[in-house]
Design a protein around this nucleic acid. Sequence first.
DNA 1: CCGTATCCGCGATGATACTG
DNA 2: CAGTATCATCGCGGATACGG
Lengths: 122, 122
Amino acid sequence: MAGGAQFTPADTEPRYEVFHTDCAARDVVGHATSRWGIWVLISLQRNDLRFYELRESIQGISEKMLAQSLRALVQDGLIWRQVEPTTPPQVTYGLTEFGRDVSEPLVELFDRITRRVAPTAG
Amino acid sequence: MAGGAQFTPADTEPRYEVFHTDCAARDVVGHATSRWGIWVLISLQRNDLRFYELRESIQGISEKMLAQSLRALVQDGLIWRQVEPTTPPQVTYGLTEFGRDVSEPLVELFDRITRRVAPTAG
DNA sequence: CCGTATCCGCGATGATACTG
DNA sequence: CAGTATCATCGCGGATACGG
C-alpha cells in the first residue's frame, strides 16, 4: 500500500482499502479477471499446457492477446513458463502455487454461474 | 502434458464448453468479473447499499459506469433493486441468492490475492 | 437523490505479416 | 512451434450536461 491512503478519520467503516488506492493487488485482480486471463487460469487448472494448446483451448483468443495475458500472469507470479531448447522449441505454462490459489475461486465462480445459467450444458 | 497428447476428436477429456461457444454463462462471468462489476458485488456482500453509497464506496467509478454495471447485474439476476417512492427517491441494491453465490468466490479471490500481494494491508 | 443522454479520447483488441 | 511487429478499429469509460 504505497503512498498515502487518504481516508476520513471519522469513518469507522472497515471498507476495502483497494477500492481507494492504487494497490498492487488491484492490478493482479485485474489480470486474473481480465477478459482472457480468467480462461487461461482455468485452462491451466487441469494440467500444464503448451502455447498452441492454450490457443486452441480458448476459442476466439488471438496469439497476441494470449501472449500478452501470459506475460502479465507470469509477471504477477500466477503462472510459470518453461522453455525446452528443442527444435521446434516447446514452451510450457503451468500454475504456480499462488496461481492455484487464485484459480480455485475462479473455477468455483465459473461453476456456480454455469450451474445456474446453463444447468444442462456439458 | 508431455508425450504428445493432442486435442483430437477421440479425446474424451470433458473440456469447458463456454470456451468454445457463445454461452450465456460467459456473459454473466464477464459482467461479474468486469472492471466495476466485481467491486459492486464485493461491496454488496457486507450489506445492502444505496446508489450514492456504492458510488462513494468504489473510488474512481463514474455514475454512468455504476448505473451501467448495476443494470447488467440486475439483468443477470445477481442483484435486486428496490425503489422507495419518497422524495427524494431512495434506491437500494442488494445481492440475490444467486448474487451471493457468485460474490463468495470473488471475495475469496480478492482475499487470497490481497494476502499474497499486500499481506500487511488493512 | 438517482439517474439518463451525449460527445469523444484512448486503450484494448483483432488481423495480418513476419521472425527465430 | 512460439511468438513479435505493425496498423486499423471498436467500444469502454470519463466528462459533462440534463432530467425525474
